[in-house]
């Protein structure tokens, strides 16, 4: 934009008209320079600038906060079913690509967490195998056959609250038997016959980042 050539009288009006946005810092560079140049030479408009600053400060008082969770819950109930349900796996994959891939550090963090969980899983399985090898094979005939629970590794979203954690555990029928691990994962135990259902249930939970069965045949 070319430099403005204006007489002082018309400049007063033009500058005062722009002062609110000058004070807010939202004028473009040429307008801002024009106002700035005028203010250096005009005491009256500098007085207006001071008043403008005070008015803005007085206007920008804080209002009481509102409950965003309650408001969002109310809106969520109104949304069409397709817009409030969890995403399909295809949409999740696309969202993951869009969210994680542009942020390499997040990808590395997830990779590190997954690796740590994998190491933990291997360690647990090998420990169980070793224990089984070393355990006495003698079993009294009167002793009831003990049913070993199935085990899972689960990573929860970092911001998950205790109430949500409790709800997820109750819904899946699992309970925490170990953790948190170095990677902030937990080991859950669940009745073997409920293993598949629990995995599905946990994977559907928004607060669960990762679910991995530790059972030998696990392909979950």
């Amino acid at each position: 934009m070319s430099p403005r050539v204006v007489n002082l009288d018309s400049a007063h009006g033009e500058v005062r008209e722009l002062l609110p946005w000058f004070v807010a810092g939202t004028l473009d560079e040429a307008e801002s320079r024009f106002v700035d140049t005028h203010l250096q030479a005009c005491a009256a408009c500098r007085g207006e600038l001071e008043w403008e600053r005070q008015l803005r400060a007085a206007n920008n008082v804080a209002l009481p906060g509102r409950d965003v969770d309650r408001a969002f819950a109310a809106l969520r109930a109104r949304l069409p079913a397709g817009r409030r349900e969890t995403m399909s796996w295809r949409e999740r994959l696309r969202a993951w690509r869009e969210n994680v891939l542009p942020r390499p550090w997040l990808g590395w963090a997830l990779a590190a967490q997954t690796t740590a969980i994998g190491i933990l899983a291997v360690a647990l399985v090998s420990a169980r195998v070793q224990t089984a090898d070393e355990a006495p094979t003698y079993r009294a005939l009167s002793r009831p056959v003990a049913v070993e629970p199935a085990r899972l590794v689960v990573a929860f979203a970092p911001q998950t609250e205790v109430a949500e954690l409790r709800r997820v555990l109750l819904a899946s029928g699992a309970r925490i038997v170990d953790g948190p691990t170095a990677a902030d994962a937990y080991i859950l135990a669940v009745a073997p016959e409920r293993l598949d259902a629990a995995v599905q249930q946990l994977r559907a939970e928004k607060s669960v980042l990762l679910v991995q069965s530790l059972e030998a045949k696990a392909a979950h």
């Binding site: 004070v23 810092g25 700035d36 250096q40 500098r46 600053r53 400060a57």
Partner: peptide, 15 residues
């Protein structure tokens, strides 16, 4: 020169 106040006052604004 008069600093554009918006930048300094961002903390109290809703930017």
């Amino acid at each position: 020169m008069f600093a554009r106040p918006g930048a300094a006052a961002t903390a109290q604004s809703g930017a």
